[in-house]
């Protein structure tokens, strides 16, 4: 259970980290008790007094110039034509829908955005935990199964290449560390889910 809670929280945290950075995120990271690098990175930026630098790096990596240095969408890595919103995206949407979810109306990015996929994992684990608390083990294992399917068909497939690009292209330590953390965490989680 504890491990599930950690997984759950970490997916949520990582998802937050792939939103455009703001003071709130910095505070949240700084407030954590860990000595982890992410917190350090965040603190550095807080001490520097603004999140502008992170916003710039975020824009360069994920928003544009004309060619994103690290497009944060699954289809770019999973489709031949380097396109956004490919068949793989529709498959992700299908899996969200299977879990009773749809993309929130004010989210204007491709549905296979890294933040969504991480959030989806968070949601599945959360539901798993809820079921466990109610001793509904059938439902819990169904949610666990959905995690396995999703990570195998989506997140786990493209994350390594995406993370490598971020690590290579990021100008701030913050995003290098986030990418590294995400990659290592997801890799570990795949092993966990398969084990």
């Amino acid at each position: 259970m504890k491990h599930e809670k950690i997984r759950c929280g970490f997916y949520k945290l990582l998802s937050d980290c792939y939103h455009i950075p703001d003071e709130e995120l910095m505070k949240k990271l700084a407030g954590m008790e860990t000595a982890g690098n992410m917190r350090n990175a965040a603190r550095i930026n807080i001490e520097s007094g603004d999140v502008e630098e992170l916003i710039l790096d975020y824009s360069r990596l994920f928003v544009g110039p004309y060619q994103l240095l690290a497009p944060p969408y699954g289809s770019v890595y999973m489709e031949n034509g380097n396109t956004v919103i490919g068949n793989s995206t529709l498959d992700a949407v299908k899996l969200y829908r299977d879990a009773g979810l749809e993309i929130s109306g004010n989210f204007k990015q491709p549905p296979d955005h890294i933040a969504v996929e991480l959030e989806f994992m968070y949601y599945l684990i959360l539901k798993e935990l809820e079921a466990v608390e109610k001793s509904d083990y059938d439902t819990a294992s169904a949610y666990l199964e959905q995690q396995k399917v999703f990570i195998k068909r989506h997140l786990g497939v493209w994350l390594p290449e995406f993370a490598e690009r971020v690590e290579k292209e990021a100008q701030t330590r913050f995003y290098r560390d986030i990418a590294k953390s995400t990659k290592e965490f997801v890799e570990e989680d795949i092993r966990y889910l398969e084990g």
Binding site: K5, I6, C8, G9, F10, K12, L13, S15, H19, K28, M32, Y96, R97, G100, L101, E102, I103, S104, G105, F107, H113, A115, V116, E119, F120, Y122, Y123, L126, K127, L129
Partner: peptide, 18 residues
């Protein structure tokens, strides 16, 4: 941090119940 997330309703930003 997890404990916070685990106690309330799902705080989904990007996905919503469909």
């Amino acid at each position: 941090a997890v404990v916070l997330a685990g106690t309330g309703a799902p705080q989904l930003k990007l996905l919503k119940s469909g």
